[in-house]
Each structure stands twice: as structure tokens, then as C-alpha cells.
Amino acid sequence: MIKTTNLTKKYGDFIALKNLNLEIKQGEIFCLLGANGAGKSTTINLLLNFIAPTSGQAFINDTDVVKNAKKTKSFLTYIPENLMLYPTLSAVENLDYFLGIGGGKFYKPELEAFLEEAGLQKEAHHKRIQFFSKGMRQKVGIALAIAKDAKVLLLDEPTSGLDPKSSNEFGELLKKMRKNNVAILMATHDIFRAKEIGTHIGIMKQGELKHSFATDQISLQDLEKLYLETMNLNEV
């Protein structure tokens, strides 16, 4: 569902991403771990075609993200670290707008059903977003993915700053999405959450994918150790 072949991004002499080869199938959650500047967000931005690759290719649902940018975007939903919506509009209005600009047309009860499925309480559906917590906003993002019937979910540190309860709720939502055969790529710093919800984990450093493995092949302790070793922080 998500595939990259030798995907590289350079800014002058600086290599932000180097020969990334990645494949995430339907029903998989791939958690990308790494320090700031490791290349996690660059990978997501390349998959979104927000930036153009220097070399290599990226595919979403077998469609080249550069050559067919608009088509690939119809398959995916993107939730950044801090999903910002229109503060003066309600959750339903925001959802209606973002689905609308993607070409979707839904009636109000359908929009409410999507928000409910994403775990947003009914009483919040028609409240202005300016009164929402970050966790509530992320749920609107998930509702967007549900409504779009997205095949791919790209998440850039979505649980950062969330309280444990909200973070757990968000993890449960991702597991639900996975059961619906959605391919999920999540960039995160949260090793615990990656181990808990991911089916696969990748560790990145300085633009390179250093390790990639299935989550069930490694314990949380070993994962933490490997991560620290990779980051050259094992002495800490």
C-alpha cells in the first residue's frame, strides 16, 4: 500500500533522507522511530508530495506520488503532530469542509456518525474547534480518515503532547483502523506506544533507516536498548 524505492531527499549537501526502501501493507502499522532530524517527517512529506524527492520513487496504492499526486491524496489521510482545524467552525463543519475539498459529499447525520466512530462525544460535534483539546482534534482527523475510507494513514507524531488517556484512546483507534485494512505510517518518539500498537518498527538516524523489523520479534526492553544504541546514547 505504501512503498518507497531508494527514496532520497537532499538539501544542497545535506542529506535529509537516503535511499529509503520501505513497504507497508494493508493492515500494518509501521512506526518510525528516531531523533529530531532523523528523516521521519521528511519521509511523510515526500509521501504527501509536499516536497519533491531528489531521487527514488514513492507509491501509495501502487500510484506514484509525484506523477499522480492528486490521485494518491484521495487514498490517504494525514494527521500532523498538532492537527489544526478552523477554530470558528464546529467539528461537523470542519469535517464537511475537508471532505468537501477532497471531492466528498456527506450529509450531517453521516458526518456525525463518522465523528462518533472516531470517538468524539456527541456534545462536541457542534462545538467550535477553538474549545477542543488536542486529543479531540486528533479524533476529528481520524473521522476524516474513516469518512474518506482512507487506505493509508500518515501520522506525524500524533500522540506527542497527549495525556496518557488520550494517547491510549488514540492508539485504540489506530488498531481499529488497522483491522479495517488501513496501512498506517506513524512517525513517533514514543517507543512504548510504537511497541504497543505497531506491527512493524523502523529506527531512523541521519536520514537512513538503520533497522526495520516486526514488533513481535522484539521485546520492549530490547527495542529501547537498540534504539539507544542506534542513537549512540547507550552510555546514558
Binding site: L48, F50, A69, K70, K71, T72, K73, S74, L76, T77, Y78, P80, N82, L83, M84, L85, Y86, P87, F98, I101, G102, G103, L154
Partner: peptide, 18 residues
């Protein structure tokens, strides 16, 4: 400023329609 720009872009909106 509101960072909605990225969500709009990720929806595959046509610039001219926007």
C-alpha cells in the same frame, strides 16, 4: 498561520478551485 494549509494540501485540492 493556522497550519490548516497542510491538511488542505493533503486533501488533494486543486489550487484554482481554492
Amino acid at each position: 498561520e493556522g497550519r490548516t494549509f497542510y491538511i488542505i494540501k493533503s486533501q488533494g485540492v486543486d489550487g484554482w478551485k481554492l
